[in-house]
Design a protein around this nucleic acid. Structure first.
Length: 584
RNA sequence: GCCCCGGUAGCUCAGUUGGAUAGAGCAGCUGCCUUCUAAGCAGCGGGUCGGGGGUUCGAUUCCUCCCCGGGGCGCCA
């Protein structure tokens, strides 16, 4: 179980620092305050918090850590009334027990702050950009894109919660070869539909080593060798056929194939994003950067700094000057830029537009290019260290114990749309954000389709939230009012499981800020599961502790707990972009 | 060959700047219960944290060398 601090920890931390300072001064050491850890104890026998300060400074003071721990305790004793007991343990830990009443105050805080509980202002409204998905409109969004959508959107939500001014941005390369191949693919299918071209054989498509046929049965094969094979290409061709008949055969208006494909596929992508609950603030693209001269400008400036040179008719970026393993081509001998140059210009524009830092979210397949973009952009004046990368590994899909292979260019991928139809957006988002980005993610379709709330973690969390409303409905039937911040008296919450829940609730703000600062949204999913894992059994085991009972004061306290759990679960689900239902 | 990311329970994975006896879910096993909405609740078993070496009071965590899996090493994006 992951553990985080809370308001009580911060207070204790201050007191430990005072005690540590006193111990240092007593030993004639006026040096710097060392880094030490004060953590929620992992085991109940170790109290509420454990501190390693004595061990950290043992060498510096040349004293046994347990002795130092005793000195710390002597200084701590009269400092903090909430401390109930202090103990030296193990190699020199100081374990701290707080009175149960210390945990009661958190509920009032949660209820007062409501949707703001967990938020902070540490971002100081600084403008930050999160760029993600950025898939070229060559086909529907697939599993990997889906993970990136959820990662990027959840990170954006986290950054917003800790006070950054977040812009979600989608950038795509519509100027390059990929889009030409897309247009050519559509045209080929169009000609095939008219009987003017032959589709390549199945074996030619699937086997990269087989010879590519020039013609079949007297008809030319025009489909590109690296063309897009999905069925949507044929749909696009059929649409053009319906609209224009054979009027596009002569080649005079070939750009219509590419333009139509880009427009229609992008429409589909935006619909999918909408279904995912992901809304971009800005869409930007490569051709705009060409049209307003930003790409030429970037190249000219790199040239001024002697960071480019000519070789073999191409223009190269001197990446080796920045300790990178090789130089890279910016402009091909054909005169066309590679994707790298627009990317560099684009990153420079991000900062010119006023962002103080940017987060790029990318799949493992083009991790390699990132250092080049970063170094070049920094050379062009972007602030060092403010271009950040969140890299994520691939997604596999497991169904019935078998992994379904994902192949990009062939039509054997699973789309986000298909998965959304099967499991719904809430489950999809929960599963996609469950793992650290750097870990491969195995999407367990059987578990995702499981509707039993106990088994499916997404439903387990949602049901925990719905239960808080169920209890409120029941209370209202019985004429019992929910407490508010003024009428709440939490002092009767004394059961160990109640204190556990209060502790978990108090950890929420630190968990949020950590997840935001480290760009690790998976902590949200774990936290949600853990809080629900405390709450569901508590509610279920009503034989030991009814929430709605005869004792009005106790009922008031427990209903306060209901509210606290509801608010924190709702806030967690909101950060995850998942609905918090009142009934299920 | 080189670079990046992983390797933790049968499976999928957490483990916060190095901390005490390494955790969760699912699967398995055993009891109990019949609910403030749904078969639940409690407990049990299960590990050389890929392997060797190093750093230190202490290493799953840091360094190094191997092994395995994935990705990348284009004038493709």
């Amino acid at each position: 179980m992951e553990r985080w601090g809370g308001a009580l920890k911060e207070q204790l931390q201050g007191n430990f620092e005072l005690a540590l300072r006193a111990v240092l001064e007593a030993a004639g050491d006026g040096g710097e305050m060392p880094e030490f850890a004060l953590e929620p104890a992992r085991q109940a026998e170790h109290g509420d918090f454990a501190c390693n300060a004595a061990m950290v400074i043992a060498k510096r003071l040349r004293k046994p850590p347990r002795e130092i721990a005793n000195d710390l305790i002597a200084h701590l004793k009269n400092q903090d009334a909430t401390i109930q007991r202090l103990e030296v343990a193990g190699p020199g830990f100081v374990n701290v027990w707080l009175g149960k009443e210390s945990w009661h105050g958190i509920l009032r805080q949660v209820i007062e702050q409501g949707v703001r509980y967990g938020c902070s202002e540490s971002g100081q409204q600084r403008p930050i950009q999160v760029e993600f998905v950025s898939a070229n409109p060559t086909g529907p969004l697939t599993l990997g894109h889906g993970r990136q959508c959820v990662l990027g959107d959840t990170i954006s939500r986290l950054l917003g919660a800790v006070g950054y001014e977040v812009t979600r941005e989608y950038y795509f390369n519509n100027g390059g070869r990929q889009m030409r191949v897309l247009g050519d693919s559509v045209k080929a299918r169009y000609l095939e539909a008219l009987g003017l071209a032959a589709p390549p054989s199945e074996s030619a498509l699937t086997d990269p080593d087989s010879p590519w046929p020039e013609s079949i049965d007297g008809l030319p094969v025009v489909f590109p060798r690296d063309g897009y094979q999905g069925g949507y290409i044929e749909d696009l061709a059929r649409g053009l056929l319906d609209e224009h008949g054979d009027g596009l055969v002569d080649g005079a208006r070939d750009e219509i194939f590419k333009e139509t494909a880009e427009r229609e596929i992008f429409r589909e992508i935006r619909a999918t994003l909408n279904d995912l609950g992901v809304h971009f603030d800005v869409y930007s693209n490569e051709t705009d950067l060409y049209e307003n001269g930003k790409i030429e400008e970037a190249l000219a400036d790199l040239r001024k700094m002697d960071l480019v040179y000519e070789k073999d008719g191409a223009v190269w970026f001197r990446a080796t000057r920045f300790q990178l393993d090789r130089d890279r081509v910016l402009v091909k001998s054909s005169g066309d830029p590679t994707y790298l140059l627009p990317d560099i210009a684009y990153h420079r524009e991000k900062f010119r537009r006023g962002f103080e830092s940017v987060v790029d979210i990318q799949g493992a397949d083009h991790i390699e290019q990132f250092p080049f973009v970063k170094k070049a952009a920094e050379a062009l004046g972007c602030p060092e260290g403010q271009i950040e990368l969140v890299m994520h590994q691939f997604v596999t899909l497991t169904q019935g114990g078998d992994q379904v292979k994902q192949s990009t260019r062939r039509a054997t991928y699973v789309t986000v749309d298909e998965l959304l139809r099967e499991v719904g957006v809430d489950v999809f988002r929960f599963f996609m954000v469950q793992r650290r980005a750097e870990s491969q993610l195995d999407f367990d379709l059987d578990l995702a389709k499981e509707t039993d709330w106990k088994k499916n973690p997404a439903y387990y969390v949602q049901y925990a939230h719905a239960r808080t409303h169920g209890i409120e409905r029941k209370a209202r039937e019985q004429g019992v009012e929910m407490p508010d911040a003024n009428t709440l008296d939490a002092s009767q919450l004394t059961l160990p499981e109640e204190i556990e829940i209060l502790k978990k609730i108090s950890e929420f703000p630190e968990m949020v800020s950590q997840a935001a600062e480290t760009r690790e949204p998976h902590h949200l999913a774990y936290y949600a599961r853990e809080l629900a894992g405390l709450w569901n059994p508590y509610v279920q085991d009503g034989s030991r502790h009814r929430i709605l009972g005869d004792d009005a004061t106790l009922t008031n306290a427990r209903l306060g707990l209901v509210l606290g759990v509801r608010i924190v679960l709702a806030n967690t689900l909101s950060l995850l972009g998942i609905t918090a239902p009142e009934t299920m």
